[in-house]
Write a protein that binds this DNA or RNA. Sequence first.
DNA 1: GCATTAAAATGATTACGACTCATTTATAAT
DNA 2: ATTATAAATGAGTCGTAATCATTTTAATGC
Lengths: 223, 223
Amino acid sequence: MADTQRQRLEAREEAILAAATAVFGKSGVDGARMAEIARRADVAEGTVYLYYKNKHELLEAVVDRFWRELTKGAIAAISEGAAVSQQLHELASYHLQSLIDDFKIVEITSRARMRHGEPGRQLPQIREYVRVFDAIMQRGIDLREFSADTAIWQIRDVFYGALEHSARTLVLRKQGFDPSVIDHLMRLFEQYRPSSRADNASGLDASEIMQALSRIETKLSQP
Amino acid sequence: MADTQRQRLEAREEAILAAATAVFGKSGVDGARMAEIARRADVAEGTVYLYYKNKHELLEAVVDRFWRELTKGAIAAISEGAAVSQQLHELASYHLQSLIDDFKIVEITSRARMRHGEPGRQLPQIREYVRVFDAIMQRGIDLREFSADTAIWQIRDVFYGALEHSARTLVLRKQGFDPSVIDHLMRLFEQYRPSSRADNASGLDASEIMQALSRIETKLSQP
DNA sequence: GCATTAAAATGATTACGACTCATTTATAAT
DNA sequence: ATTATAAATGAGTCGTAATCATTTTAATGC
């Protein structure tokens, strides 16, 4: 009965993970007691350490699973084949909603990234999650719906950075999901459409000139 | 000699804070030992607790001081009276550079925000720091250099969110400061200028360019 | 079924580090 | 000098993560 055996082990691991998620969420990482996690998972304290080397690895597993689920949800939330701008809208909405709903776990994520004094690592499942955006954007570029003159990673950092900060603001103010955040972000993203820049004038683009000038100004004022 | 006394106490507090900053930065919060902080500050372990109730309060003090210094630096980095877009450029550059330089402390900031299981609080000095952006943006709106149809907090979240994520990306890739991040962000912020939406179709706005040029002329003729 | 071996689980015990507090030392006041 | 007060000390306490010798459960062979 090797099969049932493996299932039992996986069920136990799952129980521990679920218990840990609940306790970390409720009490925070420092407030969480391994004893409570074990009790909730209905195993002895020592058993937890058969599945996870220490508290920090358990935390990483919890966070990793969270982002894996989020990736699944994001993919499900996006209408396949729809216009790129609509897909972005869907992803942004899904992301913001999720960050608000699971703010606790999201906060804990930064904790899982830090290991001792090392510079923050990237957890594999977060990397995976981020690819969802990249794929949409890449498709946008391929379809010429978006222009390719800004590195995708920079656009991605604006996207996720803005949403993360907005989510924090909304949670701190105890407001919920705010659609205007999404609208605002989507309006910003119009900037990346080739049409919005190409056909704007017969020749010169005032904004580019102004940017060049302000770069010069900046350099002049810091010698 | 009440004066010297107070100075001695403040010097001791400062020594503890400096030691804590170093040790938290080197070893991370969990890796930091109160014993090491005490030793570096050249006080007994118990003395630390006369100044800070516990490790977490010490952490908060370290983070708070960091952001207070950052606020000072930001204000110093901004040319008073310059065009709003230039001030934004300066603030963005300063911010990105600082986040990269002191990435360790910045990471630790999120830790200081979490107290037990409570939803994250806002540290007073971070609130103060954020006001620097708000003041610039408000001035931009007052001067009609920027339009008022998006809530400032949303613009602010884009600004700081994008820079924070970009800083993380740059640090993880072991690249340093990248001016294109700033240029990209500033280009996005063109969206908020009334001109870029209203009358931009005709092309150039000569008056804005002339204004910028004369500012440069002024600066060139006064070093 | 029973014996044998291996795998998994247990929880009492250990190790470690944050924090306390009785004691000592320094400073101010008279 | 003497007393009173404030500040500093570090050995000891206490809570909790992590260990590990022991027990329990499951798989395998006869």
